[in-house]
């Protein structure tokens, strides 16, 4: 092994430069050139200020907005500097309590909705930053949003339907609604009363 020491040191440096510096540097240059919006986080502007990223969920709490899934990222949820899930196992008392409370709160806030709750609506995502809801989970909130914005439920439903994205190529993943994009459109078309 002793004769292999010197090549060991030299190859450590060679690979550090090649794969740790040249490769990511090259990729950064190309990405910034070709896909600069995506490379910088698909940021969304509102009135010239960064209002978030269309890939990263936000914590909406007001009734006028479609509200996202529970989030375990950070203390208040949806903190992109502390991504992650609850890591509660299926037999966790804390999980059971949290889901029970979320379900009760949702039913209280949305008395018009009486069906079974969509599974994603009361469970926390793996990233804590899930930007999406299932179409069923946004459907369930249409009546509340419409009442809070003093708009007919039909109009809100029509807007929400435009934001339903199908499976990729009709096959991969699941249908979904991007909550931030939908809420931005809501603010644009049916602005909040000042």
């Amino acid at each position: 092994m002793w004769k292999q020491m010197l090549p060991g040191i030299r190859f450590t440096l060679v690979f550090t430069v090649l794969t740790g510096l040249v490769y990511p540097g090259l990729v950064t240059g190309l990405c910034q050139l070709l896909f600069s919006n995506a490379a910088n986080g698909s940021l969304v502007l509102k009135n010239g200020r960064v209002a978030g990223s269309e890939l990263i969920g936000q914590n909406f709490t007001r009734p006028e907005y479609f509200q996202p899934r529970p989030s375990a990222a950070g203390n208040d949820g949806y903190d992109p500097t502390a991504s992650g899930g609850s890591n509660f196992g299926p037999t966790s008392q804390k999980l059971s309590d949290r889901v029970k409370a979320s379900a009760a709160k949702f039913r209280q806030d949305n008395p018009a909705f009486t069906g079974p709750l969509p599974a994603d609506l009361v469970t926390a995502s793996g990233s804590g930053l899930d930007p999406h809801l299932s179409p069923a989970a946004t459907d369930a909130q249409v009546a509340r949003v419409a009442a809070a914005r003093r708009v007919s439920a039909g109009k809100i439903k029509a807007l929400e339907a435009r934001f339903i994205e199908g499976r990729d190529f009709g096959i991969f993943g699941e249908a979904r609604v991007n909550v931030l994009k939908l809420n931005l459109a809501l603010d644009g078309i049916y602005p909040l009363a000042k």
Binding site: S86, A119, D120, T123, S125, G126, H132, D139, E174
Partner: peptide, 17 residues
């Protein structure tokens, strides 16, 4: 159902189901 994944969604992303 037609527009939600059901199942155990704790810790999972909506886009993947």
């Amino acid at each position: 159902t037609a527009n939600q994944p059901g199942g155990n969604m704790e810790g999972k992303e909506v886009r993947f189901g």
